[in-house]
Nucleic acid binder design. Sequence first.
DNA 1: TTGACATTTGCCTATATGGGCATATGATCC
DNA 2: GGATCATATGCCCATATAGGCAAATGTCAA
Lengths: 112, 112
Amino acid sequence: MARARTTADAFNAIAEPHRREILTLLKGRERVVSDIADAMGMNQPAVSKHLRVLREVGLVRVHPEGKQRRYGLDARGLEPVHGWTGGFEEYWSESLERLNTYVKKRQREEER
Amino acid sequence: MARARTTADAFNAIAEPHRREILTLLKGRERVVSDIADAMGMNQPAVSKHLRVLREVGLVRVHPEGKQRRYGLDARGLEPVHGWTGGFEEYWSESLERLNTYVKKRQREEER
DNA sequence: TTGACATTTGCCTATATGGGCATATGATCC
DNA sequence: GGATCATATGCCCATATAGGCAAATGTCAA
């Protein structure tokens, strides 16, 4: 079996650094394809392909405007990723880790 | 150019559902390979390969114990993912979005 | 219609899986 | 050393890119 499709879900879509860069670029405002390509120093077809992936996974939306196509952010699809990783927060937050240690210690003491 | 290696970073490593499942399984306690394989209903070699990826990206650690190898979580590598997605929180949190709108409105008012 | 500009899509290549199966490597016990 | 259990690796296949380049499609203006 091959690797999962990049359009399978947001987890796969954002695994590509250039796609994350695009999403970041779209944060403040909507942008036209050539604008994005310039900002990234990439040729336009490559950008179009990444935009297609992001579109298929629902992280961006297109707003045709004459011959141009403005792309806008629809980051709701990132919530599952944020939520999933958030479930591990205690493992990297030191203060939370201390709290956790404390709680476990208390639990052990209460068991006596 | 091909897709980035799954061991390139946590973003790529957690794009695979089975690997996310493994990390979740390791949340409470450390587990031995066969234990993980059983819990996931997967054969052992496949699990070993996923563990290798997670190990190379630093999300798990091995603790040899006789002929067994206990794997433990080291989720600190997930923080960048959580942090990056967190930068988009306002786009899916409606209350936050309202707050954002309010803040921007205030800013506009202050500019007068 | 024709021309010009903006984007998308098709084609091709190098690369990287993910899982099944068989086999190698490690560790423990006799 | 030899047997046995637990894991890791090697090999093979089907599949999926990511990006470069050329060509197709869409849109608007004269």
